[in-house]
Design a protein around this nucleic acid. Structure first.
Lengths: 195, 195, 195, 195
DNA sequence: GATGAATGAGAATTCATTCAT
DNA sequence: GATGAATGAATTCTCATTCAT
């Protein structure tokens, strides 16, 4: 019975995943989710409080992992101070790992969350990355205009997601990511200094 | 009387601007727009065919100008081949000019258009910029992976909009933009080549 | 000024005639009528109380004339008793005469009046014709089932309108009408008696 | 539960039947239909796509049967060539049979369909009957003016419906119909020939 | 008198959520 | 626990009619 329940719950989440992926949060219909899960509409509400809750649930793992990753990054002191590139690599590796486990969920929260509580996910993520990168910069660059670092963070994050969105083969993924990191963070300090 | 009409039309557009800015296209309600414009709902429809039309109208000038800018860029041969930075500077200057005239409108079409006919505005713009940048690269880099150049274009465009979103003072705008251009396009060819 | 007024009024009626003919009563729009009359919407209401009133006015002449015709027929004793055919000929002649003066109006009230006060015009007309025909029958047929005579009246009236609807040339009109009268009323008494 | 559903569906159709009968298609309001069916408005749409669909459903059986009847009549060769009266009798019998099953529905499609997809039902039916009758006439009358035969068809069809509209008792129905057929088709050939 | 902008009462339809069975 | 029928608030858009100028 507990097992049964879990199975139904899983079916609902699976169906909702398909639905949100296809139509986005606002366009998703509870009826279609129910049908897809071979479950009565009303039963949806035994497992989840409402539409937002289902979305939360789907997105949660990805979200939590990302948050954990960022916390981890914030806490960590291992990486060499001043090497933003190393930091970026670390973050990227983390996102890729999460993507390996929650690929569709991650893209849903990034691309299909308009109208939901998480519609600002990318912004929030960028902000977190921004904080990390900022902290990581050597003192000389600490006073670099926040805006620039924010742009950098945002471009970097968006870049990671662009790659996740379209690259399927793991080896190409690896290669592209690395080249993007070069593009974004090589010589970053000198580039930030130039005018 | 003629004046009257224009004044109401302006009031509606103003109210709609506020509404779209606050709630986005999908969340915007005709009733609220009407109330905000101190006008009966039905009267909205004397001035605009429907909600999409109001949105179009608000967004039109910005859209047209951006499109014209990109056309212009595509046509132009003046800029030095291979100097992507010059190209980016040109595009940026154009967007800033448009922003000076249609700031909120531009941000609305970029950030608040989900559900409307223009929800893919940023993507389309990125694609156009991508095309331009690609064309501009010297032969050696023509075969650089499209994905990288797309990331570059997207990051650049997103960066421009981030700046527009938060920077108010023109002189800081100028400065930030220039530094972003350095960040994105200095040594671009060598950075694209490295692995 | 009085003259002016009349001219505007005429223009409104003309435009409304076109409108009702094209769209029927329910589908007709006051705005289109106003535009067609080169008049402001509000001004329509100086000349007519409302949409129904305009329709009434357009339809009135035809209606009154038809009513007068039927009264006339009811009053008249000239035609030979028992000769329903003669009666029908008389009625037909009357309708044709009215049609000559108010052709479009007559067809509008007959075909385009759904939703208006006059949507039952044809029924009413049939009923009047029925009364006349009934009265005209010699005693032997007085007790003929009313339904049959009603059918006869209705078919006859509908036939007249069908002809008016599609026949344009006066001489063919004349001929067709006559043949229809033969068809409907020749030997009518014996046909009514047979079972 | 299954039963429940059918019962509600039936209640909606019943309420809609009353509504359409009373107000006609255009005048019918979904809210009133819902109230009449003791159902929430939204629930109507679980059973029917929209107002047109409800109307279609109500009218369908009658419509299909009439169409089938006419097809049947067109195909049939059994009836004696030249005996339009026999043909008319056949058609009448068919319509009466359909009326026995779908009396109100048939009258609704005939009289209350203005604004719906079926507003030209009577015209279409008349045209079909016209075609049949025309085909049935012996050669001598083939070239009789179409207008006359159309009038005949139309009067006949209208006559059938008039009877259906007001006669309740089956035996009187039978009698009236027969007498109408005499009235319309006895000596039809000679009557068509006279001038 | 004329203008046409403004009004606002509906109408159809949708869909997240509830609830009787 | 499950079902899916039922609910009803919300939303967009229309158009006859009114009213300020």
């Amino acid at each position: 019975m507990q097992y049964q329940k879990e199975e139904v719950r899983a079916r609902i989440l699976q169906s909702a995943l398909d639905e949100f992926e296809k139509y986005g949060f606002s366009g998703a219909k509870m009826l279609r989710i129910a049908r897809g899960a071979r479950v009565a509409t009303g039963n949806l509400y035994r497992y989840f409080k409402n539409k937002d809750d289902i979305f939360d649930e789907i997105v949660k793992a990805g979200y939590i992992n990302i948050a954990a990753l960022m916390d981890e990054v914030v806490e960590l002191e291992e990486y060499g101070r001043g090497d933003v590139r190393l930091l970026a690599r670390y973050i990227t590796a983390g996102i890729m790992r999460i993507h390996a486990g929650y690929g569709r969920e991650l893209l849903i929260i990034a691309d299909k969350s308009a109208g939901s509580r998480h519609e600002d996910f990318l912004q929030v993520l960028c902000e977190m990355v921004f904080t990390c990168i900022k902290r990581e910069m050597s003192f000389d660059f600490k006073d670099t205009d926040d805006m620039l670092i924010r742009i950098l963070s945002s471009g970097f994050v968006e870049g990671v997601f662009m790659i996740l969105r379209s690259v399927r083969e793991p080896e190409r993924l690896e290669e592209i990511i690395n080249r993007m990191l070069v593009l974004y963070f090589d010589d970053i300090e000198s580039r930030l200094n130039r005018r």
